[in-house]
């Protein structure tokens, strides 16, 4: 998961990067990445998932996606979860996320256009 902030300098660096990437989170873009942050999601590590998406989207230069949060989706055992919604309304729900999985999802799905089947929640 994302490294814990241990100094004001580290946080400032992250904050400045976030400011520079303000475009990422302004309004709703064609592609929306929504991290589920109900009690279950938070307890499972959703806060770090948000931070990792922020970092990975920025690092990959993805400007067509906006990052959002929402509550519990009723699949608590799959937390931390994120839902990717495309412009045509197609939704992909990923579960049991960690830093590495978020990296793969950003690289393969959001940049490459191929959903990561192995991490999709099968319902």
């Amino acid at each position: 998961m994302a490294d814990k902030i241990t100094s004001p300098d580290q946080l400032l660096a992250r904050a400045q990067k976030a400011q520079a990437d303000l475009d990422l989170r302004q309004g709703r873009k064609d592609t929306q990445v929504t991290v589920h942050m109900g009690t279950c999601g938070i307890a499972a590590g959703a806060r770090d998932v948000v931070a990792t998406f922020m970092t990975e989207l920025s690092a990959a230069g993805v400007t067509s996606a906006s990052l959002h949060q929402t509550g519990c989706a009723g699949l608590c055992e799959e937390e931390p979860m994120a839902t990717i919604t495309l412009a045509d309304g197609t939704m992909y729900r990923y579960g049991l996320l960690d830093k590495d999985k978020v990296h793969t999802i950003v690289t393969d799905h959001l940049v490459g256009g191929t959903p990561v089947d192995a991490y999709l929640i099968k319902t």
Partner: peptide, 8 residues
């Protein structure tokens, strides 16, 4: 920070 970033 998480809430500020995802709820502008």
């Amino acid at each position: 920070f998480t809430m500020v970033a995802t709820n502008p």
